[in-house]
Design a protein around this nucleic acid. Structure first.
Length: 600
DNA sequence: GTAGGGTTAG
C-alpha cells in the first residue's frame, strides 16, 4: 500500500484500519450524506492525500452521481498515481462526461503518469456503442506503443469496441483477432458477437464451431444472432443442442419468436422457463402489446406484478413503446397508474416514453401534462412532444414549442428537425418548412440527412409542388432511397401525376423489387386517371415478379380489445350495426356538403 | 473484457 506521509503511531494504525473498513463499505453506497460524512472524517484525519482513500472516495461520489465532489477529492491530491487517474476517468465516464474522461487521459500523460491496462479498458468501454472508430483506433495505437496487448483483457476490449463501430470496425477486429498470439474464451466470444452484430452469421457460426471450448456466453451469443436475424429454425436447433440453458438463453428464444410475430411459440417457451426475471416478462408483455393484443398484455402485466416483480425502467419503456406503436392507450394508462402507485418519481427516460405513448395515442393533453412535469427535460422529451403535436396537425403549436425549446437553452438536433419539418407538412406550412430546411445547417449546424430530404419532398409533394420535389430529388447530395421515391409516388397519386408516377416506379422497382406497396399505388394512380391499360400493365408486372399486396387494415381499441377491419370486411360480430352506422355517417357528411372522392 | 428486454426519426 502506497502512503504519502508514512506516520508510525499506534493510534493512527487503529484509526487507519477503521477507515479502511469504512471506505470499503462505501463501494455500493448511494447515500450521499454517508459518503460526505466519511469524507469529512478522512479530511480531519489528514488522509485525503492517501492513495488508498482518495480513489475510494472518488468512486463513492461518482456512484452518488456527484461528479463535482469526486473531482474535488481528486484535485486535493498533489501527485495522483495511475490508479487515481483511472478512478477519475471511470467516474467521468459513469456520469456521461466522456470528453472530460479523455481530457483526464491526456492530462495524465502530460503529467508523466503512464496509462495502464485499466485506463484503456475504461476508455474503450466509453466508446462502446458510439461508433467512434477513430477514437478506438487512437487507443489501439497507444496500446501498441505501450505494449499492453500482452494482457488479454486489453485486446479483448479492443475487439469488442471495434465490433461496435460498424463494418469498418469489424474488419479491424478480425485483423486483431487473427494476429493475437493468445486467445481465451472471451476473445472468441467477443469476435463472434462482433460478427453477429455485423450480420456475418455464417462466419460467426464457423468460428463458433471452431472454438476449442464453449461457455454460456458463446452459446447465447450465437443463439441471439439467429434470433435477431429472425432465423428461428436455426435458433431452435441450437437451443436444443445446448448443454445448459440459463435465463438468458430462454429469454433470447422468447424474444426471437416474439419479434418474428409467433406469439404462440413465445408463450409456450415463456411458460416452460424454469426461472423468470424481468426480461422475459418484458418481452412477452411488449410482444403482445406490439401486436395490439391488449388483453393478453394486460393480463401478463398483472401477473408480473402479482409475482412480486417490480417493473424497472427497461420494462416500462419497452411496454410503453409497444403501446405507442399499436395505439394501446388503455394499457399505457394502466402502466402509468402503476408507475405513480409504486414510484416516488420517475426518470426522464420513463417520462419521455409516457409523452410519446400519449402523443402517439392522440392524448395530446395528457402528453403535455407529463411533458411539463419533467424536471430534467432532455432533447428526447422535446422531440417526442414536438413530434406528437406535429403529426396531429398542430403545426403552429409545434413551432411554438420549438421556439420555447431554444428559449430554454436546448439545442435542436437532427431528430428535432424531422419533427419540425413533419409538423409543417401536416399543417400545410410549406414556406415555413422550406425556411427551416434551408437554415438548419447555417443556423444550427445540422447537416440535412436523407430523412430530412424525405420530409421536404413530402412537404413539397403534398403541397402540389411536384416539379420542385423532383428537382430536389435530383439535386440531393446522397442517393435517394426507396423512402424518397415512395414519398414522391404518394405525392403523384394525390395530384394525379400519371407520367411522373411511371418514372418513379421504375426507380422504386430497382431499389425494392418486391415491395407490393409501390405497385398498388401506381395501379391506383392509373385507375384514377382512367388509364385501364396502365392498370392492367401494373397487374401483369406484379404477377410476373410474384409480388402480392397484402390488404391494409385499420384497427381501433375499445375497452382493452383491438378490433381490426379490412376493406369490405364482414367478419366482425357487430358488422351489420357497424355498416348501418357508416351509412348514417355518410348521410350526415353529405348533408354538410362532403363529396366523396370515388375515382381512385 | 463477452450473452437476453430499453424513450424521440417519412
Amino acid at each position: 500500500m502506497q502512503m504519502c506521509a508514512p506516520v508510525r503511531h499506534p493510534s493512527w494504525v487503529s484509526s487507519r484500519r477503521l477507515f479502511e473498513q469504512k471506505l470499503s463499505e462505501l463501494q455500493k453506497c448511494t447515500n450521499l450524506s454517508h459518503v460526505k460524512q466519511v469524507h469529512a472524517q478522512i479530511l480531519k484525519a489528514n488522509l485525503h492525500q492517501d492513495f488508498y482513500a482518495a480513489p475510494k472516495l472518488v468512486a463513492a461520489f461518482s456512484l452518488c452521481r456527484q461528479l463535482a465532489l469526486a473531482v474535488n477529492v481528486f484535485d486535493q491530491v498533489q501527485h495522483p498515481n495511475a490508479h487515481l487517474y483511472n478512478t477519475l476517468i471511470r467516474a467521468q465516464i459513469q456520469n456521461s462526461q466522456t470528453s472530460q474522461a479523455f481530457f483526464t487521459f491526456f492530462n495524465m500523460q502530460g503529467n508523466g503518469v503512464c496509462p495502464d491496462n485499466f485506463t484503456y479498458s475504461f476508455l474503450l468501454k466509453a466508446c462502446s456503442g458510439k461508433s467512434w472508430l477513430p477514437v478506438v483506433q487512437m487507443i489501439h495505437t497507444h496500446i501498441e506503443k505501450y505494449g499492453f496487448c500482452s494482457d488479454i483483457f486489453v485486446p479483448n476490449s479492443l475487439i469488442d469496441s471495434y465490433s461496435k463501430c460498424g463494418p469498418l470496425g469489424i474488419t479491424s477486429a478480425k485483423k486483431l483477432f487473427t494476429v493475437m498470439d493468445e486467445r481465451d474464451i472471451v476473445s472468441w466470444n467477443s469476435m463472434i458477437g462482433g460478427l453477429v452484430k455485423a450480420g456475418g452469421l455464417v462466419e460467426a457460426r464457423r468460428l463458433f464451431d471452431e472454438m476449442p471450448e464453449r461457455d454460456a456466453f458463446s452459446w447465447n451469443t450465437m443463439l441471439d444472432g439467429y434470433a435477431k436475424a429472425g432465423e428461428m429454425i436455426e435458433a431452435f436447433e441450437l437451443f436444443e443442442k445446448m448443454p445448459e440453458r440459463n435465463v438468458v438463453s430462454w429469454s433470447t428464444m422468447v424474444s426471437g419468436y416474439s419479434k418474428a410475430g409467433d406469439m404462440d411459440m413465445a408463450r409456450m417457451l415463456f411458460d416452460k422457463m424454469p426461472v423468470k426475471n424481468l426480461v422475459p416478462w418484458t418481452v412477452i408483455i411488449s410482444g403482445y402489446a406490439e401486436r395490439g393484443l391488449a388483453n393478453e398484455a394486460s393480463i401478463f402485466y398483472d401477473q408480473m406484478e402479482e409475482a412480486g416483480l417490480k417493473p424497472d425502467d427497461g420494462t416500462i419503456i419497452s411496454i410503453l413503446a409497444a403501446c405507442a406503436e399499436s395505439g394501446l392507450l388503455g394499457l399505457g394508462k394502466k402502466v402509468h397508474a402503476s408507475i405513480e402507485r409504486t414510484r416516488f418519481k420517475c426518470s426522464t427516460q420513463v417520462s419521455n416514453a409516457l409523452v410519446d405513448m400519449y402523443a402517439k395515442c392522440g392524448s395530446l393533453d395528457k402528453a403535455f401534462a407529463v411533458f411539463d412535469g419533467i424536471a430534467k427535460k432532455d432533447s428526447v422529451s422535446w422531440n417526442a412532444m414536438l413530434q406528437g403535436l406535429g403529426v396531429h396537425g398542430h403545426g403552429k403549436k409545434a413551432l411554438q414549442l420549438f421556439a420555447r425549446m431554444k428559449q430554454e437553452g436546448f439545442f435542436p438536433d437532427k431528430v428535432t428537425f424531422i419533427g419540425v419539418l413533419c409538423a409543417c407538412t401536416h399543417a400545410g406550412l410549406v414556406e415555413e418548412g422550406l425556411h427551416y430546411f434551408h437554415t438548419m445547417e447555417i443556423e444550427y449546424g445540422i447537416v440535412p440527412e436523407v430523412e430530412h430530404y424525405g420530409c421536404v419532398i413530402d412537404l413539397l409533394g403534398r403541397g402540389g409542388r411536384l416539379d420542385e420535389a423532383f428537382r430536389l430529388v435530383h439535386s440531393m447530395p446522397m442517393e435517394p432511397n426507396c423512402v424518397i421515391w415512395g414519398t414522391l409516388l404518394g405525392a403523384c397519386r394525390v395530384h394525379n401525376a400519371v407520367e411522373l408516377a411511371g418514372e418513379v416506379l421504375d426507380q422504386l422497382v430497382k431499389l425494392a423489387p418486391s415491395d407490393p406497396g409501390s405497385f398498388s399505388l401506381l395501379s391506383n394512380i392509373y385507375a384514377a386517371a382512367g388509364d385501364w391499360d396502365g392498370v392492367a400493365n401494373v397487374r401483369l408486372r406484379m404477377r410476373s415478379t410474384g409480388v402480392q399486396k397484402p390488404s391494409g387494415a385499420s384497427s381501433i381499441e375499445v375497452d382493452n380489445a383491438v378490433h381490426e377491419f379490412t376493406v369490405f370486411d364482414e367478419s366482425h360480430p357487430q358488422s351489420e350495426k357497424i355498416y348501418q352506422m357508416i351509412g348514417r355517417l355518410v348521410q350526415n357528411l353529405k348533408q354538410v356538403g362532403y363529396v366523396p372522392k370515388v375515382h381512385s
